[in-house]
Amino acid sequence: MTEALHWLGYAFVAAGILFFLAGSLGLLRFPDVFTRLHALTKADNLGLGLICLGLALQASGPAEAVKYLLIWLLMLVASGIGATLIASTALACGLAPRQADRPPSTSTSQRPTEQ
C-alpha cells in the first residue's frame, strides 16, 4: 500500500513537472502580458497542485500532507489575486490585449477612472 502510494506520488510529481514546463513555454512564447499571465497562473498552479499532491502522498504523516496542501491553497489565492492585479494594472496603464485580426494598439483600451 505504501509502495503503491509512493509510485502514485512520483506519477503526480512527473505530471506536475509537465504542466510547469508547459507554463514556462507559454511565458516565453506567448505574445502579450495577458496570455503570459494565463499560461503562468493556469498551468503552473495546476502543476504546483499536482506536485504538492504527489509530495503529500509520500509524506510521513497527515500533518505533513496537510502542510503541502496548505502551500498549494495559499499559492492559489495569492497567484490568482496577483494575476488579476497585474492584468488590470496593465490594462489601466494602456496595454491592450493583442487581437488576432488587427495589429496591437496601445491607445484603444478604455482607461478605468482614477480613484
Binding site: 489565492v77 495569492a78 488579476t84 492585479l85 488590470s88 489601466a92 496603464c93 478605468p112
Partner: peptide, 14 residues
C-alpha cells in the same frame, strides 16, 4: 492603479 477589491481582500485573508 486600479481599484480592485482583490488586494485588500488578499491582505485580510492572509
Amino acid at each position: 492603479a486600479t481599484a480592485l477589491p482583490g488586494l485588500p481582500a488578499l491582505s485580510h485573508l492572509l
